[in-house]
Amino acid sequence: MGQQASSITLEASLKNLQVISSFLHKWAKKASLSTHSENELFLAVEEAYINIVKYAYPESLGKVSIHCRIEEDSLILKIRDEGIPFNPLQLSEPHLVSCLKERKVGGLGVFLMRRFVDNVKYEKEGKYNVLTLVKSKKRDTECQEGESREERGS
């Protein structure tokens, strides 16, 4: 059994998005996620991370750590910060109106994050805000099998 958990700690700034992308890419490969699932997982992480950059540390640079591990059929990420608490699960869903004039700009980040991973959990652990994201490898396999079945059937 190889290394099944690791973490990175970095300054919460926009420029570190690339570092997170590389870190997650390694884990997505290790978990044999498809590129599609990797993109979905990264979107969830990006939305969580950008919320921390903008709202957890609005005036100063703070630290964010991302811990990643593989557990049975899932890739589990814990994103930890010590800024202003924010529970994304308490945010109401945006109104997805199809009229351009009435559609509000923004508010999609948390909505998409919740759609693209299998589980989202927010906890306060002492001074830390901990957001846990779970991406199931099983669903990915089922999707791939479904896709190839569709291809064969078409």
Binding site: T35, N39, F42, L43, E46, E47, I50, L100, K101, R103, V105, G106, L108, G109, L112
Partner: peptide, 20 residues
């Protein structure tokens, strides 16, 4: 473009509104 997040969507919507 292989990847887009809400930040990309926000730009597209803002530009569409401006053009409208």
């Amino acid at each position: 473009v292989e990847y887009i997040s809400s930040a990309g969507l926000r730009v597209l919507l803002a530009v569409a509104k401006k053009l409208k």
